[in-house]
Amino acid sequence: MEIQRKIKFEGELSRDFLDEIKEMSHCDEIDRCIQCGTCSSSCPMAIYMDYPPRKIIAFVKNGFREEALKSFTIWLCSSCYTCQVRCPAKIKITDVMYALKRKAIQEKVYPGQFTIPVLAREMYRMIAKNGRSSELWLILNLYLKSWNPLGLMKMAPTGISLLKTGRMSFKKEKIKNTSQLQKILKAVKEDGQ
């Protein structure tokens, strides 16, 4: 076993991290966290997380950039908002998780086994192209682009019953004024750069 230092030196912490996340999440209250743990005990996903939400907030507050961005936690957040409505310090924890996801995608540091960024990206592309999402195509793309044909096979019986009951179709949904939507997306994208 390699002996490694487990504690970070202060100089290794990211000083700007808190401010970046505050701005991205539109949540100024992050450093008011009292580490009470209400978020962690409310979280239905906490049992699967590598760090519970309380620790993630502490990471953000104290500049542990890699620990927060590379965590599984941010990808396991299901946006149920339970922690957010219960937080006594009024920290918008779900929005902080969203900000961390965006940051992790930007910096390309998310853990590889998660297909969630793939889902987000595929959905984004589909909407940019057609204005609406077509569930069947979204699912197909998700499994193909995340190299998971086995998962797709397992989904087949479900897919068949959905097709049978008319709840899924190969039709691609599309809006009429796609050019207007694309102009909006293009302009907002350019504004952000």
């Binding site: 969203y98 965006r102 995608i105 969630i116 987000a120 984004y124 909407i127 204005g131 504004d191 952000g192």
Partner: peptide, 18 residues
């Protein structure tokens, strides 16, 4: 008339401005 997808939770994860 001619509504578009809201983007759901996935879109906010990619870009909140979009």
């Amino acid at each position: 008339e001619d509504w578009n997808c809201c983007g759901a939770t996935a879109y906010f994860a990619v870009d909140d401005r979009m």
